[in-house]
Every structure is written in C-alpha cells, then in structure tokens.
Computed example of a mutant assay.
Amino acid sequence: MQYRKGQIVGYVEASDRLAVPAAPDSWHVLQVMPGRDAKVIKAFAERCISGWSPIVVHFVQRGNGQQARRPHLGRRIEKAFLPGLIFLPDFELGRLGEIRSIPDVDNLLNFGELRSWLNATEMQLLRDIVKIENLLPSRRRWALAQLFLKYGFISVAQAEDETKLRVGRQIRVADGVFSGLRGLIERIDSNGRLSAYVGDGKHGVKVSGLTEAQIELID
C-alpha cells in the first residue's frame, strides 16, 4: 500500500510523562571540580539532568594572547564564568544522590545561615550579566548601563550619562590600527563621528572619523 504525504495512517498510545516546571522557583549552587564544568554538564545531558554552567566566550590574538577586538581577528576561547559552580534547578534536588555519584561532583554549596540559593529574579540578573560578558568590548558599557536601569540600580539620567559621548571623555580605541590605546574626545561632528587625541602616555596623535562602535568609554 502506498501512502501520500500528510495522510493519517494510525495512532499510538501516549506514555505518561513527568511534568517538569519550565521555570524553577529557585536555583541551587552545586560545587564541582574546577576545570571539569563542561565534563559534568555533558554527564548531565547524558542522564537528562537539568543544570546551567555559565560560559563566556573571548577571542584572543594568536601572537600575544591579548584579547582581540573582533572575533575574526582572534582564536575562540570558552571558559566557565564561575569555575567550579553549576546551577541546579529546584526540581532536580530529588536526584541529588544520583548527581553526586557523577565524577568530579562534590555537593551543594552551603553558606550556613545565609541563603544558599538564587530566586528567579536573581538568576535572570546573572544570565543578563553573562550575556553582557559575551558581547564585544565596545558594546559592554552601554549594555551594562541598560542592565542597571532595568533592575533599578540607576536612574534614566544616570544611564544616559554612562553612555553619553561628550568632549573631554576618556575612551579606548577598540578597532583599527590604534586598537587598545587610550584617548580623549576632542570633537564630535554632526554625524556623531569623533576626533580624539590618542596616545600611549608618551606620544600621541589626533585621530578623526571614529564611530561609536570603534571605541569604549572608560571613565
């Protein structure tokens, strides 16, 4: 018998499945051997255990190991943001014995009388911070100001001041032949392009035509 695409050919009985909360109420901190975070997360995946190990990605120059200003200019390096710590959702606590049997896993972190877990809001803040750490250096300051504004740490006026370009403000060049050098904004034209005095402390040169994406604010 031939079947055609989209034809219903039969039904199967659906097996009972355990309902797992998509958004846990709390996250507990699990200690693992530093440097083995990725190995433990892989073991979690093999056992269908939920957990999160924050990862930051950087790109380093192949010659000197310093941070590259653009991904295509360097070698990709992945590192644990909090080495030796994995976040475990509350619905996995019932499997703690099985989790502790995994090589390189220690136990839940205990701060004594202090609270030893993160609520949903605190976990979202941590996720946002990790997301910012994975941005290009030239975009981190703006993103951090927006994060502080989102959680009420600063006001709208303070957020605007943190990210505002103005004459006299110190910068670091993030792209081009002067990448990595500090400078001082001397002029901003009507198109938002900058002229800055850039130098290494002893010698300097005036650089014109810089865009906001090519600099980092450092003061």
Rank of each mutant, 00 (worst) to 15 (best):
V105I: 05
A143M: 14
K39P: 00
G176S: 09
A45V: 05
V40W: 05
Y151D: 08
A174T: 10
E92M: 12
Q124M: 05
S26W: 03
R187S: 08
L114E: 07
K5T: 12
T163K: 08
I77E: 15
D16V: 13
L108D: 05
V205C: 06
R100A: 12
Y197G: 09
H28K: 13
Y197V: 12
A22D: 09
G51Y: 06
I215D: 00
D106L: 07
Y3D: 05
S15T: 05
P71A: 06
W52F: 08
F148K: 12
L217N: 00
K5L: 14
D104P: 06
R100V: 09
A174E: 09
V177K: 06
E113W: 07
W117S: 09
L73A: 15
E113R: 15
K131F: 07
Q214N: 04
D106F: 08
A68E: 02
G84Y: 06
E186N: 12
V105P: 00
L217Y: 03
D16T: 11
R36V: 02
D189M: 08
D161I: 03
F111H: 11
E98W: 01
S195Y: 01
L184N: 06
G183D: 04
I8N: 10
L147K: 04
P54E: 00
S195A: 12
V156H: 13
I99R: 00
G176I: 09
S26H: 14
D219C: 03
D106H: 07
V29T: 11
S53R: 07
I218W: 02
L210A: 00
K42F: 06
V32C: 04
E212G: 07
R62L: 08
V60I: 12
Y151K: 01
R47G: 00
